[in-house]
Design a protein around this nucleic acid. Structure first.
Length: 347
DNA sequence: TTGTGTTTTATTGCCTCC
DNA sequence: GGAGGCAATAAAACACAA
């Protein structure tokens, strides 16, 4: 829209007083509501109807001469002496004429009441305004189109505001996610580093492990063997078990410092089901001939403290465990547990 | 005064409903 | 099939800057 334009697509009543002032030179406070009051026509207000000269140029203007005047008669303006103005525009066929401000105001008020036009109302409006019913219908049709456009603009603004809000939220969450991913990466690196350190230290320990392994066999046989009974666990074996447990705890506490996010409450897993997934099967399988030190630890603990009467483990099999909905206290940091990236660093 | 952009009035063609 | 609504569009009217 050009700057300074006083009329526009928005023909709301708020701008009509300005319109009138510009077009008629009348006071801005001059009540347009007089259109809806009978007997409002006087010599000072009559110029406001001069704009209606446009309606005299319609095709059947000769026949409509009387009906045009009906618009004024309806407001008590039978004798206003504007016939000369009518005649001036009588014979301009094909010329498009704008409705007067007052006619538009009248139509606007009618539109506010009901934006659809019933046939009876159309005829009545046409009669009152001195227009053809078709003109009234066209005006309402165009007015509805303008209203729809405005409404779409409003809806667009609302949607855009909503979009901007969501976008801001998304950006915030994305930054937080990136931050957490970085943290996870750091922790994962640290874990790998410590595991390597542990493996190197284990290789040194293995030199002395022959003796330890012999002792472990002594512990296992009474527990797992078919002929073994609980009463057969000797006091000496119990001593060895305790010693091994201390060794394990020592190694574990060496691996995980107190600041690392993990699922341990101490050197032993608080939730055995969250055991390492690097090779998750080993936790629940009875026979593992080639066990690393870490695996040996779990192997030992599981066999020592969680035996069943039938010598099978009481842990559920891995495939029976539902990991789809991990507990709140798990260490998945909100990542889906089925994500391999999660299992690569979780415990 | 003129060119340009905007608004309004009106037409056309298509669609839906009764 | 006619009436009416709607989208697209033409064309006139209008405002304004250069």
């Amino acid at each position: 829209m050009a700057g300074g334009r006083v009329y526009g697509g928005s023909t709301g009543s708020s701008s009509l007083s300005v319109l009138l002032q510009n077009q008629r030179g009348s006071s801005a406070t001059e009540p347009l509501d007089s259109l809806f009051l009978s007997g409002s026509c006087n010599s000072s207000s009559s110029p406001s109807f001069l704009g209606s000269r446009s309606m005299m140029s319609f095709e059947d203007v000769n026949g409509a001469n009387g009906s045009n005047k009906s618009f004024y008669r309806s407001f008590g303006c039978d004798e206003i002496g504007i016939d000369d103005d009518f005649d001036e525009y009588f014979h301009q066929p094909g010329k498009k004429r704008r409705l007067s401000v007052d006619q538009v105001q009248f139509l606007e008020k009618s539109f506010e009441v009901e934006n659809k036009l019933e046939p009876e109302r159309k005829v009545q409006l046409a009669k009152d305004l001195g227009l053809q019913p078709r003109q009234v219908a066209i005006w309402f049709q165009n007015r509805r189109a303008r209203w729809k456009t405005k409404q779409m603009e409003k809806d667009y603004d609302v949607l855009q505001a909503s979009y901007n809000s969501l976008k801001a939220d998304y950006e915030s969450l994305r930054k937080e996610t990136d931050k957490l991913k970085t943290e996870v990466q750091l922790l994962s690196d640290e874990l790998l580093k410590r595991e390597k350190e542990k493996e190197s230290s284990n290789s040194e320990v293995c030199d002395d492990s022959n003796k330890l392994c012999d002792q472990e066999e002594l512990v296992e046989k009474p527990i797992i063997g078919e002929s073994a009974s609980e009463g057969e666990i000797s006091k000496a074996s119990t001593t060895v078990v305790c010693q091994q447990l201390e060794d394990i705890s020592s190694v574990r506490s060496d691996i995980f410092d107190s600041d690392s996010p993990r699922c341990f409450t101490d050197g032993v897993h608080s939730n055995p089901l969250m055991e390492p997934a690097r090779d998750s099967s080993y936790v629940f399988e009875a026979d593992q001939s080639d066990l690393s030190q870490d695996e040996e630890d779990n192997h030992f603990i599981n066999r020592t403290f969680l035996p069943s009467s039938s010598s099978s483990y009481i842990f559920p099999k891995l495939e029976d465990v539902d990991y789809s909905d991990p507990p709140e206290t798990s260490c998945n940091f909100g990542y889906p547990v089925e994500d391999p990236a999660f299992w690569s660093w979780s415990f």
